[in-house]
Design a protein around this nucleic acid. Structure first.
Length: 136
DNA sequence: CGGTTGACTCGCG
DNA sequence: TCGCGAGCCAACC
């Protein structure tokens, strides 16, 4: 039974991004660049931010779990809403420092093999993903 | 169809 | 270590 197919290359980049974000477990975070790679397009981090900014709320996604490469919370999450972003993450059980950063070594999401397989991620992207985000 | 935008990233000084 | 500029890419208008 092939139901539960997570995504396929035929889906739009946008749909794959939304799906991947929905897979980030509570208590973990992912970076924009990481989501872009998982969606099959290296270097599309900014596009991921754009997509979440536009569709995050309407799709009821845990978009608070997506932060930048340095572990910092999004500046434009909402005008002065970096505090609400901090609270949303803490509600997930993620520690947020006073300078609004998260310890990626501790909280970065490492997708399971099963998920990677179902995303049908090309080998080269898998390699890049492991090289950039595998933190002992 | 083409220019603009931005919840990003990287590299350089 | 930090700020700034340039590069990137899909969505938008």
């Amino acid at each position: 039974m092939g139901q539960d197919r997570l995504s396929s290359p035929s889906q739009s980049f946008r749909d794959r991004v939304l799906l991947i974000v929905s897979l980030i477990p509570r208590g973990k975070v992912a970076t924009y660049g990481q989501v872009a790679l998982l969606a099959g397009v290296a270097g599309a981090a900014q596009a991921v931010g754009n997509i979440l900014h536009v569709a995050g709320y309407t799709h009821d996604l845990p978009f608070q779990r997506v932060i930048n490469q340095k572990g910092g919370l999004a500046r434009g999450y909402s005008p002065s809403g970096i505090l609400s972003h901090k609270r949303a993450l803490e509600a997930d059980g993620v520690e947020v420092s006073k300078d609004f950063t998260v310890n990626l070594k501790k909280y970065l999401w490492h997708p399971s093999e099963a998920i990677l397989n179902q995303l049908q991620l090309p080998v080269d992207l898998r390699i890049e993903l492991a090289a950039r985000y595998k933190l002992h």
